[in-house]
């Protein structure tokens, strides 16, 4: 994901997401510049799927992406840091209980 905004006068920057095949999520693959979203889609096809890497593409203007701070130490993620009881491994259950 990019930290830059669209450049005045030039074509804006788009982020590109590709679904590799049915059943998978779209994944961010990179960015490109295009005059508008429709052109961004065509360019994304030519740039990121020259070898059947995708069955579906999303493009979104980089300027429209709202992002958290990137750092893993960011307090933004603190609420999930200390809640080990959200994981199944937190619970001790006798070994002979089946199917659990």
């Amino acid at each position: 994901m990019s930290g830059t905004e669209a450049v005045d006068g030039g074509w804006p920057l788009f982020e590109v997401f590709v679904r590799g095949k049915r059943g998978l999520n779209h994944v961010h693959v990179g960015s490109l510049r295009a005059a508008d979203a429709r052109m961004a889609l065509t360019h994304a096809r030519d740039l990121y799927t020259r070898r059947n890497e995708g069955v579906s593409i999303w493009v979104v203007r980089s300027a429209d992406v709202t992002a958290s701070a990137p750092d893993e130490r960011d307090p933004f993620f603190a609420p999930s840091g200390d809640k080990v009881y959200r994981h199944p491994t937190f619970y001790e259950i006798p070994h002979d209980v089946p199917h659990i």
Binding site: M1, S2, G3, T4, V7, G10, L13, G30, S31, L32, R33, D46, L47, R50
Partner: peptide, 26 residues
Amino acid sequence: WAKVQDEAGHGLYLYGAAETLGADRD
């Protein structure tokens, strides 16, 4: 043709990477 197109693609991936550092394409 395919090979030369790939090289154009490589250039564009890389310009994209440079732009994530705040560089401007133009």
